[in-house]
Design a protein around this nucleic acid. Structure first.
Length: 604
DNA sequence: CACTCCGTCACC
DNA sequence: GGTGACGGAGTG
């Protein structure tokens, strides 16, 4: 702690144009972020304290604009970088969601949470802004003062918003979009659209009925959920079954709204349970609770984690399981990882992983938690967020979700709407992988992750399929809060974004994602303290951590981190260097030895 | 009151 | 004009 820390520079995509604003942030010594900085003192080749100091001097108080040429980074998302030298920045281990998003975690949160993955291009509501300052900034950017506020839309694949609705037959698509109106949250609405194989769109059951005209009996078809009643009943039974089982093994702890999003309640008749895909996939989960295998931790450790005390938790995902998950959706993987790091209640986690439906939160709870369909737009995991995210989904993220009804919101947020990468990918990917029994999961300390809402819909991202194995180390000093922590989707977005340029993995919020053939890996610096902190823990555990640390350090020594190049094009403007990377892909692309940090260079 | 449906508006 | 989203009337 006494050693000099590199100053964190945060690149935040806080405008609709995708402009990135780099700025230094003051970190409290004990904050999670500052820990991240502390634990990443060695920022790569050429990095040294002197340089860092210089950089601080040169950049202190400055706010540089960086033209982001990629839309991969969600609005509000931030990439933390350490100032290594006057012209070099290194991605910090922690990347967080925009403050706005965080703030929304306790509020409506539709901005992030709702945003469907990739749908930062939707109409905006008053609640999309955290504060007046931000509001003003955006108001000046576009459009006069229209009755409706719109968010610049980033081109995304059309399919991102549309989910297959096999219930109606091949080729049918369905989309659920939460409205981001400025009316009272309780009055929030969502629209469900269907697109026939021919491309005809229907926005009501009436229209659908007319279109089908006898071809298909949709009298028992639930327009909102996209399922036929008999299927819903079946799912309900499965969920009930799981719930009973999990209740007997889980401990009581308050769950987070975000997590709840993944589970829909059947208590509300007529309310959508899940999107077609979600519904279709969760059944699999229910039957095969585990998607991710975590290394087991001593019960006492888990307890400490739950209480929020500093502790190191290593969660290793089975390569095969990850592979199956990652192969179809990287966001899913991230989501799982991120979620697993959260101090979720065993019960909820279990429920989530098993596809069970935790007791649905009350509407007030949802509102308080800031849930809001990402969108409905982003439709959106996580939301995805995580915005059920809707962002149309999408965007679940967040936390800002606000479902008209808990059930619907949850559905949407869990991926229903997200334009997100999502939902389908999530479901298809991990949910169906062979899984250990529920007891095994519990014993291993696994924590299910939840899909995001509209985040899903709103966040919709195209996820590369490069990740197969993921190892996550939870930094003891970074205690993610289920509500305030950045939605997994955002983390994944950031990772994706950075990978697009660096081709490597980075550490997000203290979690490191790796591509890997290595069964176990860990972030290095961040783990040092963790190991020490947990030294009093069971020897086997500490030893293991130490081994991981050692191995990681060795890897770090062997490899140099890749760099993302930013070119200075103006007085204080920077442009991503035409996607130029200052590294050789072969050096760390598939070697399995992923650098801990991705460097970002600012070339003047 | 919650939900459905659809007219209408705004943007591209 | 197409699409997405909002507002509000209609319905149970």
């Amino acid at each position: 702690m006494d050693r000099k820390r590199p100053k964190l520079l945060i690149l935040r995509r806080d405008t609709v144009e995708g402009r990135m604003v780099a700025r230094h942030i003051a970190l409290e010594e004990d904050t999670a972020l500052s820990h991240a900085a502390n634990q990443a003192p060695d920022l790569g080749e050429g990095a040294n304290q002197g340089d860092q100091a210089v950089a601080e001097e040169e950049t202190r108080g400055e706010e540089a604009l960086i033209q982001l040429e990629s839309d991969m980074l969600p609005l509000g998302a931030e990439v933390q970088m350490h100032t290594v030298s006057s012209d070099r920045l290194v991605l910090a281990k922690g990347t967080r969601e925009g403050e706005g998003c965080l703030a929304q975690g306790t509020g409506e949160g539709s901005g992030c949470v709702d945003g469907p993955p990739g749908a930062w291009s939707e109409p905006l509501g008053e609640d999309d802004f955290d504060n007046e300052e931000e509001m003003e900034g955006r108001d000046n950017e576009r459009r006069p003062a229209p009755k409706r506020k719109w968010r610049w839309k980033v081109p995304v694949q059309a399919d991102d918003d549309w989910e297959d609705c096999s219930a109606l037959g091949p080729g049918w698509k369905r989309k659920v979009v939460f409205r981001r109106s400025t009316t009272l949250p309780a009055k929030r609405k969502w629209d469900t659209y269907y697109c026939s194989p021919c491309g005809d769109r229907m926005r009501s059951k009436v229209e659908l009925t007319k279109y089908l005209r006898g071809g298909v009996d949709i009298s028992r078809f639930d327009f909102q959920s996209g399922l036929f009643l008999d299927e819903k009943s079946r799912l309900k039974r499965l969920n009930h079954l799981e719930e009973v089982q999990s209740s007997s093994t889980s401990t009581s702890r308050t769950g987070t709204p975000d997590l709840d999003r993944n589970h829909t309640s059947d208590s509300l008749p007529g309310t959508p349970q899940r999107t077609p895909q979600s519904q279709a996939s969760f059944p699999h989960i229910t039957q095969s609770p585990t998607v991710v295998i975590h290394n087991s931790l001593p019960a006492t450790r888990k307890a400490s984690l739950a209480s929020g005390s500093p502790s190191l938790r290593l969660e290793q995902i089975s390569p095969q399981r990850l592979s199956s998950v990652a192969s179809s959706s990287r966001d899913v993987v991230i989501s799982h990882l991120s979620q697993s790091l959260l101090p979720l209640s065993p019960t909820k986690n279990q429920l989530l992983q098993s596809g069970l439906q935790p007791p649905s939160p009350t509407k007030n709870q949802l509102l308080q938690s800031g849930l809001q369909p990402l969108s409905p737009t982003k439709n959106q995991l996580l939301q995805s967020g995580l915005q059920p995210p809707s962002p149309t989904k999408n965007q679940l993220l967040q936390s800002g979700l606000q479902p008209p009804s808990p059930t619907k919101n949850q559905l949407l947020q869990s991926g229903l709407q997200p334009p997100s990468p999502t939902k389908n990918q999530l479901l298809q990917s991990g949910l169906q992988s062979p899984s250990p029994t529920k007891n095994q999961l519990l014993q291993s300390g696994l924590q299910p992750s939840s899909p995001t809402r509209n985040q899903l819909s709103q966040l919709r991202l195209q996820t590369p399929e490069g990740h197969r194995k993921v190892v996550v180390i939870r930094r003891p000093d970074v205690d993610l809060d289920p509500i305030t922590s950045p939605p997994p989707q955002h983390l994944s977005l950031v990772t994706q974004w950075t990978q697009q340029w660096s081709g490597s993995n980075i550490v997000l919020n203290g979690h490191r994602e790796m591509d890997t053939e290595k069964p176990t890996c860990t972030g290095r610096h961040g783990q040092v303290e963790s190991v020490e902190a947990s030294s009093h823990k069971p020897g086997s555990y500490s030893e293991r951590i130490q081994q991981l640390k050692t191995a990681n350090d060795k890897d770090a020594e062997k490899k140099q981190s890749p760099s993302i190049v930013f070119r200075k094009v103006g007085g204080d403007k920077w442009v991503l260097g035409g996607k130029q990377l200052e590294f050789k892909e072969e050096e760390f692309g598939n070697s399995g030895k992923t650098p801990l940090y991705t460097k970002v260079r600012f070339i003047t």
